[in-house]
């Protein structure tokens, strides 16, 4: 298990949009090391090598809905819950990175 560095945690924090200061980063790096150390023992389950992964506890397939329009929510009710709204839209601060 590679020791988790502050830089690694900083990268993870940016990926997950968490503004953390250096002391928080260091704290998390230490805790992550301990936790990963513990969960790393999962690699000891060597007989897992040739079994299929389970993604759904109870296997079901082809669950779909007919293409039928259902009522939407009332916009005023929706926007009332928003931190900021303008002209029937959600207002957000300026966007920097463009996907």
């Amino acid at each position: 298990m590679p020791e988790i560095t502050r830089e690694q945690v900083a990268h993870l924090a940016r990926l997950s949009r968490l503004a953390l200061d250096d002391s928080e980063l260091d704290g998390l790096a230490a805790q992550l090391d301990v936790i990963l150390g513990a969960v790393a023992q999962i690699s000891a389950a060597t007989d897992a090598a040739d079994v299929p992964p389970t993604t759904h506890a109870v296997p079901v397939e082809n669950v779909t809905r007919p293409d039928v329009v259902a009522p939407s929510l009332d916009r005023d009710e929706v926007l009332a819950a928003a931190p900021a709204a303008e002209d029937g839209r959600f207002r957000v601060p300026r966007i920097l990175d463009v996907e």
């Binding site: 949009r17 968490l18 503004a19 953390l20 957000v92 601060p93 300026r94 966007i95 920097l96 990175d97």
Partner: peptide, 11 residues
């Protein structure tokens, strides 16, 4: 920026 506000909010 939005990214800053998002990150501050989640933190």
């Amino acid at each position: 920026s939005l990214e800053e506000v998002m990150s501050a909010t989640r933190a």
